[in-house]
Write a protein that binds this DNA or RNA. Structure first.
Length: 216
DNA sequence: TAACCGATACACT
DNA sequence: GTGTATCGGTTAT
């Protein structure tokens, strides 16, 4: 169950900070997804920061487009993108409006509504896999492009909100190169902006960027 | 119009 | 644990 104190979304000020401050602070927080069938709550265990203007790994790096427009808007809103022609991934917009920074939600532990998540994640072999990976997380929560631009800080029965939860103590926070971003993880390791909770079984395995095989 | 992007499932070892 | 097949949307040309 969600405690009454957990019904209040984190304020917009929480997200209106440098993305590298927000990202680790999101670990241990609870994402509450309201669906017609009931709520699903997820404790965040792994995130990645993307800093629009400086960050070649960010969708916003090349400027504003129809797809990434939400990233350029006010903080505390949800940016959802479609990838691999099959899946969605979910981000939270951070920093001041126009900065186009965001945090990709990579993994978490379902703490309420697991029965609803299991229906969407039939291939998961156990509950730890329900949201282990960004597309799995979005699938488990039933998040698609229709939720792009949702305000996660709004009051009332919103589709998505982030509540305080129990922030991960800093001594349990680890960071390292981001998954699947070109140039990271090798000698470069220029952006060790993946943050996770140490030893948490729901954190996704690290995979270096796979070089593309030339199309024949 | 075509190149490019990228997370997962599953088969296999 | 490793290798491979899978796709539609986005962007630049």
């Amino acid at each position: 169950m969600i405690a009454p104190s957990d019904r209040t979304p984190l304020p917009r000020d929480f997200f209106d900070r440098p993305v590298l401050d927000v990202a680790p602070d999101l670990l241990g927080r609870i994402l509450v997804r309201s669906t017609p069938d009931g709520p699903i709550a997820l404790r965040l265990t792994e995130v990645e920061a993307y800093d629009g203007p400086n960050d070649p790994g960010s969708h916003a790096y090349r400027g504003r487009t129809a797809r990434n427009g939400v990233m350029f808007g006010p903080p505390g809103h949800v940016y959802v993108y479609f990838t691999y022609g099959m899946w969605h991934c979910m981000n939270l917009v951070c920093g001041p409006e126009g900065r186009a920074s965001g945090v990709l939600l990579r993994a978490g532990e379902i703490v309420e509504g697991a029965e609803l998540a299991r229906i969407r994640r039939l291939s998961a072999r156990n509950d730890k896999e329900l949201a282990k990976g960004p597309a799995r997380l979005a699938t488990a929560l039933g998040v698609g492009r229709d939720l792009d631009g949702t305000d996660a800080c709004a009051a009332g029965e919103t589709p998505i909100r982030i509540v305080a939860g129990t922030p991960a103590p800093s001594h349990q926070v680890r960071n390292g190169p981001r998954t699947g971003v070109a140039g990271e993880g090798g000698n470069g390791d220029v952006h060790p902006w993946r943050f996770w909770i140490a030893d948490d079984p729901t954190v996704s395995p690290y995979r270096a960027h796979a070089p593309r095989r030339r199309r024949s």
